[in-house]
């Protein structure tokens, strides 16, 4: 059973199952959308290896994501498997594809903005557009939001508060 399908087919099947595993803090984003799913491989003995990387050192969702991956694979009959946490290369928001950024915006979270080279100094602030009205007249309320990956902003055009998914680059 384990070896009935070729490895590329099995890897594609595993990836399809993992597309259903979401970031528990942003349910419209899968772990692949988030750039957290780094690799899927199959050992010679048929064990599926899923490699993930954390977004932030203290991301409290990692435990739940690991459990969700196991649950999704087991439910799909994909066993045995193991989930590996790998830190290098370090996660960056560059790994979030454009379509996923658009989904994030539609969900009400402003996607990461690339800081301009001129704004690298200690107190620099990016221009973050409001995810609802697209106005660039926004202000930061707090650098720290409800999760490690987000900051609090407010739109001074439509007056809605919103969350900004912070840009991480190395």
């Amino acid at each position: 059973m384990v070896n009935a399908a070729s490895n590329p087919d099995r890897i594609a099947a595993v990836r399809a199952v993992l597309d259903g595993v979401c970031d528990p803090e942003i349910p419209v984003m899968s772990i692949a959308d988030m750039g957290m799913l780094r690799d899927v491989a199959i050992d010679p003995d048929g064990t599926v290896e899923v490699v993930i990387t954390p977004t932030y050192s203290g991301c409290p969702a990692m435990g739940m994501i690991t459990t969700d991956i196991g649950l999704a694979l087991a439910t799909a009959g994909i066993e045995p498997y193991r989930v590996v946490l790998r830190h290098k290369p370090a996660w960056t928001t560059d790994w979030i594809p454009p379509a996923a950024r658009e989904r994030m915006r539609a969900y009400g979270i402003a996607p990461p903005v690339e800081p301009s080279a001129a704004k690298q100094s200690l107190f620099a602030q990016e221009t973050v557009a409001c995810p609802r009205c697209r106005s660039e007249k926004t202000e930061r309320i707090s650098e720290f939001g409800a999760t490690a990956c987000k900051a609090f902003y407010r739109c001074t055009s439509c007056l809605e508060p919103f969350e900004y998914f912070k840009c991480v680059r190395h």
């Binding site: 932030y56 370090a90 650098e143």
Partner: peptide
């Protein structure tokens, strides 16, 4: 490699903490 990855993430986060404390 693993330590380098942990350190890269920590460098980014520490810079953020520094910015907060400096402000």
């Amino acid at each position: 490699d693993e330590l380098a990855g942990i350190a890269t993430k920590a460098a980014h986060e520490s810079a953020y903490h520094l910015r907060h404390a400096s402000g």
